[in-house]
């Protein structure tokens, strides 16, 4: 199985790159859910609305919290630990890049565990 999360990082302020990242990231989460649902003892995770981060602060905050909730669920099923991915200001370039690295690392671990990378 190949990953759909090919463009797993993008430059701060790159709107085209961000769009590519958003859709690939969402698709990768859907694939985790397919893997969990196809287990001998299926685990069905509902669809979390994380396809688009949004533009204004409220939208971004909702996305970060929703996304963190999904990662919290996945960490439990994958038996891994991770940082709280909602604690970030994505409008700050430094925090943005640190978050990208942390998030990317967690996805790499999840990819390996769920066999989608």
């Amino acid at each position: 199985m190949s990953t759909e999360f090919g463009a797993n990082v993008f430059e701060f302020g790159d709107s085209a790159g961000r769009g590519e990242w958003e859709i690939g990231h969402y698709r990768q989460h859907l694939r985790y859910q397919v893997v969990l649902a196809s287990l001998a003892n299926p685990i069905v995770i509902p669809d979390f609305p994380i396809m688009r981060i949004g533009e204004n602060k409220n939208e971004v905050r909702v996305w970060l919290d929703t996304h963190e909730n999904l990662h919290t669920l996945l960490r439990g099923f994958a038996n891994v630990n991770g940082i709280n991915l909602s604690q970030v200001d994505l409008s700050d370039p430094n925090e943005f890049y640190q978050w990208m690295d942390s998030h990317n690392l967690e996805h790499a671990i999840l990819d390996a565990i769920f066999g989608v990378a």
């Binding site: 709107s15 085209a16 961000r18 769009g19 990242w21 958003e22 859709i23 396809m51 688009r52």
Partner: peptide, 12 residues
Amino acid sequence: NKNGVYGIFGAT
């Protein structure tokens, strides 16, 4: 389309 030119930015 008849309203203008659009761009698909990934999911948007």
